[in-house]
Design a protein around this nucleic acid. Structure first.
Lengths: 237, 237
DNA sequence: CGACTGCTTGAGTCTGCTCAATAAAGGTGG
DNA sequence: CCACCTTTATTGAGCAGACTCAAGCAGTCG
């Protein structure tokens, strides 16, 4: 089977619960199409617009003066980029693959969506998920090995865009390059390649040839390699 | 001079702008006193309360099954711990030093502080600052060296609790131990000690003997060592 | 005054990075 | 349609920053 075909290239209508209530945004905003590598926002820009991903994948990132780059998050169709920003964007954003977004001026939402409680709810949810994701990644980047980070990343992607395959495998499309995975996980690209190869050698995953995605063959092995966090000392209720 | 005396041990009334409007919380909540190392919340707890720090310092953290720990953030008097959580806390929180908090049940705020726009504003601000801080730390942890992380950390602390000294130095109290700094910066405690010693050797900082804080002697040197992020390719407007 | 906790310092190791060369895939234009 | 060129991934060798293990020291608290 072709993993690339499993990409969710369009917005799954109302799939992401917390974003409900944003459906009418398309009516207000402007559609914009982006090629791979094309910038959507620059760090420091006035944050007068936010962007709903309609198709493709967007990455937000921060960079140091000497060119090192850290990808903060990946955004898929249905996600909101820059919704959580303050006055100015604290990060840049660019397209990973061929993407479309709907850009909505903040002003059009009233000061803070005062009228629309569902929208306010949605904003809070988006913010909360973004906080929790960023904090989780602090653990990844601060305390996990390359192998663990990769495993965590694959599980995250599996949870977002994974599709159960007919042969029992979990097919996970990966629209980003290995360089971008490296910039997300705080690793060198060579380390990503090597670690992926190592996971593949054990049979836990299978890499789809032109690095279009992976198939998770042994989910337990990946979960074990991810070195899960320890939520409850006594086990879950 | 005694750096420890510069600790902001009580809430600076209305010092933190975005938290304005929380003043009356103390009337609703319950005061709780914590000893060093005492837990305030556990990862996985139902998030039915949030906590305003009145005195001391609180750290939030995540841990792996094998005991590695990543400190997510430090909270000083005036800050709100757990305000941004969802249903359950995704992290634990414990006191760094002798601390007091005011614990406020979420239920007492209405569903989301619907009545009080200032409070809603405050919640959004708190969330936004937490997002931006967590994302900034992704850059630190993913792409910066031990030396850079330490320098960034010192600048962050200086911005929060630093006091200009009479001799031109910037006095920065550090209530946390080096182990806790290490857990915050994703380093080993030995590395923190060594790197701090190295910065002191160059004259950029001076460590106050019982590790109660540092005095920044050469701010430019620390800023240079921090390897600032690159916001604008062309310089700021 | 003694035990403990936290910091310092040293020696050796290792994970992951750098540099480099090769290979494969995809896009472009003739 | 094919040849070329660019981009991305793979693989190897060597290096180094940060970790681990370990011993010693100082300040604190009981």
């Amino acid at each position: 089977m072709n993993v690339a075909a499993a990409h969710p290239t369009t917005v799954p209508a109302a799939r992401r619960g917390p974003n409900a209530g944003f459906g009418r945004l398309e009516a207000i905003g402007v559609i914009r199409h982006l090629s791979p590598r094309e910038s959507l926002v620059f760090e420091g820009d006035a944050a007068d617009c936010f962007h709903r991903v309609l198709r493709g994948t967007i990455a937000t990132y921060k960079a140091t003066a000497d060119g090192r780059r850290q990808i903060i998050a990946f955004f898929y169709p249905g996600d909101l980029v820059g919704f959580t920003a303050g006055e100015r964007f604290a990060y840049g954003a660019e397209a990973i693959d061929r993407s479309s977004v709907c850009s909505v001026p903040r002003a059009k939402l009233g000061v803070l969506g005062d009228e629309e409680p569902a929208l306010r709810e949605g904003l809070l949810s988006a913010l909360r998920r973004e906080v929790e994701a960023a904090q989780e990644r602090q653990l990844w980047l601060g305390r996990k090995t390359a192998r663990e980070r990769l495993a965590c990343f694959l599980l995250e992607c599996a949870g977002r865009t994974g599709q159960a395959g007919p042969d029992g495998g979990l097919s996970v499309p990966l629209p980003m390059s290995q360089l971008e995975v490296a910039d997300y996980l705080g690793l060198a690209p060579e380390t990503v390649s090597r670690t992926l190869a190592q996971l593949a050698r054990t049979g836990a995953i299978e890499v789809v040839p032109p690095f279009a995605g992976v198939v998770v063959r042994d989910r337990h092995a990946i979960e074990a390699a991810a070195g899960e966090s320890a939520p409850l000392p006594g086990g879950s209720a």
